[in-house]
Design a protein around this nucleic acid. Structure first.
Lengths: 251, 251
DNA sequence: AGTACATTGCGTCATAATAACACATTAAGC
DNA sequence: GCTTAATGTGTTATTATGACGCAATGTACT
């Protein structure tokens, strides 16, 4: 919840919020950063409100930065959710009381909200979940084991993943999700996890190499079971270029 | 401008608007439906506000329906625009006076607005531009000859076209842009116009046919110069199926 | 040390998709 | 009837994709 919002409603854009679907990758699993709500047994996406003097993109960056502690990450708006009924039952009186929201601020919280969805791809190891005032809990959760979410947050999460899957065909990914040096099997696992589909090792290698954004290092990964795989890094310049121009332009 | 908004601000979601980029196709040109603003020599996208008790998608349908008179059209949300400065200079006093907006309503119009962009594909011949109270003017304008637009509407239009170009690879189009019976050269021209690129006749035919959404009719187009082209119709069932499942799934 | 096993690197082959191009057909206009 | 411009229907070379074979490498076990 945004700082000072209880005292200064008028400093925020009314009826508008930001919700972020923050993806990370760890242990061959796609993780999503979720927050446990203090007042009921559900979870929510990290979100916030939009300061009246701040661009919506900036407000999204603020949410992300506040929750992960990192900057300069991949962040993209993917949809805006505005069904009337999406929050009409949410902030009931008992919840407002539990949150100790003063009477005069309640109207602000119970108004109709439209929310703008952003999704982010971040480095799991660099992104340290940040609690709100050291209270509550925030955790990385396997996207296959997402618990019940408040409001329409499940729908938002699903839409984010769907968008990510489609955009896999339009842009390279991995730079923000993997450590600097990584192996081909790791990159492949990332794709397989996002797509929820097995890919052929050898065809994957060929296709990824054809994009031309990887540099193979001399070193191999050490301390691994079985044959040591090669290490790769992204060629940042080429990566950015492909990100900008897109790939796979059908027509 | 939405009905009753001057008297009943509180019936609308504050600081939120809808803008529609309505595309049509005629004379081998991609057209955009634009409105001449009465108070200055600029044009704007057709838009509206969001009734407090209406889904945003419904509000977008309302705008579209009001401006074209048609229903059941292809309409898709593509982005939300929320820079702080996007409308801070727009509704200056002289404009508010010109619009005869009463003093107490001015605060509503001068607040910060975030707008949700939708784009639509409609049949040029069926969509008859509808004026506001028979005042002002609304016209189909060639997308290559778009005049100066208010606010960030040019940016919104560009983003819509960019989205449409990308989505050409993910879905079939034409059903909402062409008459029921059409020729292959017409469909090709549509693609060429949207993409702003020449395509090879024979390769285009093969690729379109492989999608499997067209039925060739027995008849040919009559009263044409040169060789009479075949007529086609979309197979609605297959079209809808491909629309839903998408095409060209890279991975 | 030797062997089984899992995993990686690198390659082949058949098929499908794409790009570039040739030629015959049809109708209008002179 | 001839020219012209557009359409219908191919062919061929190149590239991308999908399915699969096999040798190399390191761990674990006997």
């Amino acid at each position: 919840m945004a700082k000072g919002i209880l005292e200064n409603n008028e400093n925020y854009q009314p009826g508008l919020s930001i919700d972020c679907v923050i993806f990370g990758f760890h242990d061959n699993q796609l993780k999503v950063l979720l927050i446990k709500t203090p007042y009921e047994d559900k979870w929510s996406l990290p979100g916030g409100f939009v300061p009246i003097d701040q661009d919506i993109d900036t407000a999204a960056v603020t949410v992300l930065n506040k929750r992960t502690g990192i900057e300069g990450i991949f962040l993209r708006q993917f949809a805006t959710f505005g069904r009337v009924k999406r929050n009409d039952k949410h902030f009931e009186n008992k919840i407002l009381e539990h949150l100790k929201i003063p009477e005069k601020a309640r109207k602000w919280f119970t108004q109709r909200f439209v929310t703008i969805g952003y999704y982010a791809l971040v480095d799991f190891l660099k992104a340290i979940p940040q609690k709100e005032n050291n209270k509550g809990s925030i955790e990385w959760i396997d996207h296959k084991e997402v618990p019940e979410l408040i409001l329409d947050h499940k729908e938002i999460l699903d839409k984010a993943l769907h968008t990510l899957r489609i955009e896999l065909n339009l842009m390279p990914i991995g730079y923000n999700l993997l450590p600097e040096k990584f192996t081909m099997p790791e990159l492949q696992k990332l794709y397989e996890t996002i797509l929820d589909k097995k890919l052929d090792r050898r065809n994957f290698l060929r296709k990824i190499n054809n994009i031309g954004i990887l540099n193979k290092l001399e070193e191999k990964k050490s301390n691994v079971a079985h044959k040591a795989p090669n290490l790769y890094v992204f060629d940042k310049d080429k990566y950015e270029e492909v990100l900008k121009n897109g790939l796979n332009q059908g027509w």
